[in-house]
Amino acid sequence: MALRSVSRMLNNRAINQVCKRAYSDEMSFTFAAGNRVFYDAKSVKQVDVPSFSGAFGILPKHVPTIAVLKPGVVSIFENDGSVKKVFVSSGTVTINEDSSVQVLAEEAAPVENLDLAAARDALNKAQSQLNSASSEKAKAEAAIAVEVAEAIVKAAE
């Protein structure tokens, strides 16, 4: 009898722990870009993303939402306290009910891989393209290029 109750207690505790783990302070974070995958359903502490409605931080149990990324730096605070900064050109953020987070980017690169001089060159080129653009479409495309290049320069500095 005693043995059985002990084992039941253990069982209950185990179940409690499992339940806690499923709903608790962890998020399943996926960060993928067209060129590589950074995180695949990993647990992290916090993620800061730049979106069109302003930059915001995501902690576990964030309210579900979707947002569109704008060019900028995504910062990932890992569980061991280290911070990883990745530049993204564009993409989407999805935060679901079960606290799973997906960041999908068109292209992404770690900030330390960015070359400031090359970024400045790209910015100058984009600006001259914007000035010389004649049609509406070319203008819009050049404006996007300038926006991205500015964000890269800012991130690389």
């Binding site: 993928a32 870009a33 359903a41 999805t94 799973s100 997906q102 960041v103």
Partner: peptide, 10 residues
């Protein structure tokens, strides 16, 4: 694969 899975998740 994570992109495909992530994009259809929502």
């Amino acid at each position: 694969r994570p992109i495909g899975a992530g994009a259809s998740q929502f």
